[in-house]
């Protein structure tokens, strides 16, 4: 199983530095560069995505890049289970501020305030057309994520399930953790293929 860890300065593969953030490069540009390197799907307008969505897309791209099993699975058999506490509280707050000040906002800002938007972007970008859940939890709860993925693989007609925790807090902390789980000999066992995570600090 490949393990990637993304910090704000470097992408590590199995503990070793794999791609470094260039000097003077902002985090958003670093994530965009990773997407340009690892994203293999159809063209997608990454720039209209908020920071949480971009981090989810970049982490997923890194996570699925080397996985032949992911690419050979039909889209309807790919499932997605994400979890979050608020989604992007930063985007919520930005929208609320505009409302309080009677300022007009871009229509896309409201759409980005829905907690399932990053998951929706990942689904659209990576061709996930199977079962789809976004759970809201007080803190990352791997057991619930694993259990929901197991139920999805056992009863939801999925062969692969991308699970992840994502959060973008008011302190501008960004956290994304992804794992691809799969059903081995349908309904018998849930294993993991690859995982990737990002944390701003």
């Amino acid at each position: 199983m490949h393990q990637f860890r993304l910090t704000n300065d470097c992408l590590f593969q199995d503990g070793s530095p794999y791609r470094n953030r260039a000097e003077g490069q902002c985090l958003r540009d670093f994530l965009m560069a990773l997407l340009q390197e690892f994203y293999t799907g159809e063209s997608y307008r990454f720039k209209v995505v908020d920071d949480l969505g971009l981090a989810c897309l970049a982490t997923t791209a890194v996570c699925v890049y080397h996985e032949k099993r992911w690419h050979s699975t039909v889209l309807e058999k790919r499932a997605l289970v994400f979890a979050t506490h608020h989604g992007s509280i930063v985007t919520d707050q930005e929208y609320q501020n505009c409302l309080d000040l009677n300022r007009r906002t871009s229509p896309r800002v409201f759409v980005q305030t829905l907690p399932n938007m990053a998951a929706g972007q990942v689904a659209a970008c990576f061709g996930i057309r199977g079962e789809y859940y976004v759970l809201v939890q007080t803190s990352p709860d791997n057991a619930t994520l694993e259990n929901t993925a197991a139920l999805t693989l056992a009863y939801g007609g999925a062969d692969l399930c991308l699970t992840g925790w994502m959060e973008y807090t008011i302190e501008q902390e960004l956290t994304v953790k992804m794992t691809i789980r799969y059903a081995h000999e349908k309904d018998q066992f849930v294993g993991s293929l690859a995982s990737a995570s990002i944390a701003r600090s």
Partner: peptide, 21 residues
Amino acid sequence: ATSNDGFHISRPKPDGAGLSD
């Protein structure tokens, strides 16, 4: 069952394939 269109975040897939599935 649930599914995702895997198409767009604010527009449904016009052919209804996801809902049909």
